[in-house]
């Protein structure tokens, strides 16, 4: 017993030190992961997309509602915009004609995405260098074969040059992701051709979108060119509204008929029995009246 008390006192006296130490310790900050992407879509709209995430148990977790600053230029940086991340940790900014961009001698732009950090999160940044590429795509029927031709040129030192040796992906956008049709390597003239499959379903009218894309190209970023046309098979999917089945809202007809016939038969007989009861009652009353008269 004594031993126990001494032990307890010992523990209790040491405990405050431990607690103090824990409080004194600095809370470890999150190291965020910043990415920056350049997107140029089919309408030549340019978008800077930056993400802010961190890694926990090998899972990527977005940081929401964070302000990120976007800059252009290398030595002398100029602020383009401040954006706030959404619930997926993504923030986007569209580059318009009003946006002042600083290009280097070769005509490339440098973009920087910077997060300043706060009490619990460290600062972080990401930088990309982008050359403006011009991607062209033409879709033609060659002897009934659906043929895709792509051509890409880059402005370098004020001159237009073919983007030889680069890879362009031909994709078809689907509900959740893009379906890869083929991967083309551009030849010396900056062009390439591919055959489009003949058995790919489109929508109800057979329309689908063909998308040519530089995907995460280290020099060009993400650059897209797309066109929607009737190159797919028509898919007609409709469930008739008055569809009768076991698992729909309305029952098969035979079921309704059988049930009605059975129920009418049975309840008809019940009615007969009920009427019989009433007849007995009426008969009894009549008899009573007759007796009364006599």
């Amino acid at each position: 017993m004594r031993k126990k008390i001494i032990y307890a006192i010992l523990v209790l006296s040491v405990l405050p030190f431990f607690t103090l130490r824990t409080f004194g310790q600095e809370v470890t900050k999150i190291t965020p992961y910043v990415t920056l992407q350049y997107l140029k879509n089919s309408e030549s709209k340019r978008i800077l997309q930056t993400t802010l995430t961190y890694s926990k148990n090998r899972m990527e977790i977005p940081l929401q509602g964070m302000e990120i600053s976007l800059f252009t230029g290398t030595e002398k940086k100029e602020t383009i915009a401040h954006v706030v991340t959404d619930n997926k940790g993504i923030a986007k900014f569209e580059i318009t004609g009003d946006t002042k961009l600083i290009s280097d001698k070769s005509g490339a732009w440098t973009f920087t995405s910077e997060y300043n950090g706060n009490d619990s999160i460290d600062a972080g940044k990401s930088e990309i260098v982008i050359k403006d590429v011009n991607l062209e795509m033409s879709l033609t029927l060659v002897d009934t074969i659906k043929t895709i031709t792509v051509k890409a040129t880059v402005m370098e030192n004020g001159k237009e040059k073919p983007a030889a040796g680069e890879v362009v992906k031909i994709l078809v956008p689907r509900m959740f992701s893009n379906l890869l049709i083929s991967e083309l390597t551009l030849d010396d003239s900056g062009s390439a051709t591919a055959e489009f499959p003949s058995d790919l379903p489109g929508n109800k009218e057979g329309n689908l979108t063909v998308l040519a894309k530089f995907e995460e190209n280290p020099v060009f970023g993400n650059v897209e060119k797309s066109e929607t046309l009737k190159w797919g098979l028509t898919t007609d999917y409709s469930v008739p509204k008055s569809h009768r089945a076991l698992w729909t809202k309305t029952a098969p007809k035979w079921m309704i008929y059988t049930l009605s016939v059975l129920l009418t038969g049975v309840w008809g007989h019940y009615l007969f029995a009920l009427i019989s009861l009433i007849r007995i009652n009426i008969n009894a009353k009549r008899k009573a009246r007759e007796e009364y008269k006599i």
Binding site: H269, I280, A284
Partner: peptide
């Protein structure tokens, strides 16, 4: 008892009804 007095007619109605219901009850 619905004023049942056991006249011949009442007996007939009742026994008919019971017959029908007996058959019905089996089927059901």
């Amino acid at each position: 008892s619905l004023g049942f007095t056991g006249t011949e007619q009442q007996h007939k109605i009742l026994s008919n009804a019971r017959m029908v219901m007996a058959a019905m009850v089996i089927a059901i």
